[in-house]
Nucleic acid binder design. Structure first.
Lengths: 113, 113
DNA sequence: TTCTCTTGTTCCGAATCCATGAACTACTAG
DNA sequence: CTAGTAGTTCATGGATTCGGAACAAGAGAA
């Protein structure tokens, strides 16, 4: 049982369906929103504090893998931590306006209850 | 074994995660794109002709149920057919710009291969 | 009516996906 | 070396999904 190296897709090979699938889970969407608002990279603990849902860490780790493999986030190991950031600019080039409108939709949704 | 009545969610109770999940499947996304381009309601056969994928009809029927229950499409039975249309205007009110940017992203993606 | 064709639905088994606890890696600090 | 922290991997049970077969339901013909 050894830790696999992190691998990130090139943005030009990122599929829309994968992006939408990654964002179709409320917890993953919350992670993305937190990374978006933070503007600075966050590790998992920091992110989950902002998200405020008590997810088991194994589940959390899987969510990060889905987000990473979908092309939405870029991760780097910093010692024992995993530093993640949204690939905002790259995504904007590939799918202009997409991320913005999804994050806006999420804000509207959470404002309406 | 009897056919259940069609039920549609009210738009204000439609969840973003459900919409994204519905659109995260390439075939469903293609159905939505076809309905969008058609501008007029289509039945399943007409839609699948435009989509051009030989999906089994049971799978197809499930996809329609997912799209309907997510709030994306409105369906009515016309005799033996199921007439479907995108709930474009309502969705635009609930999640402004969302559908538009997703459909645009899909066009960009299919143009890039 | 009854027969047949068409369109879509439901059921069910198999395959697949997903969530989570337990065990583990890997790094840091003392 | 030991302990602590951050995250990963594995195993497994539960939930979803796919697709073939059977079915429902309406239209049209006789």
């Amino acid at each position: 049982m050894s830790v696999r190296p992190l691998k990130h897709p090139e943005m030009r090979s990122v599929a829309l369906a994968d992006v939408l699938h990654a964002l179709s889970d409320p917890d993953r969407l919350a992670i993305v929103a937190a990374l978006h608002e933070a503007k600075t990279p966050l590790n998992c603990v920091e992110t989950m504090e902002r998200v405020g849902s008590g997810l088991p860490k194994s589940t959390c780790s899987q969510h990060y893998a889905v987000l990473r493999e979908s092309g939405l986030i870029w991760c780097e190991r910093r010692g024992v931590e995993l530093e993640s950031r949204l690939r905002t600019a790259e995504i904007e080039v590939r799918f202009p306006g997409l991320l913005k409108s999804i994050l806006k939709a999420r804000r509207l949704e959470s404002a309406s209850e």
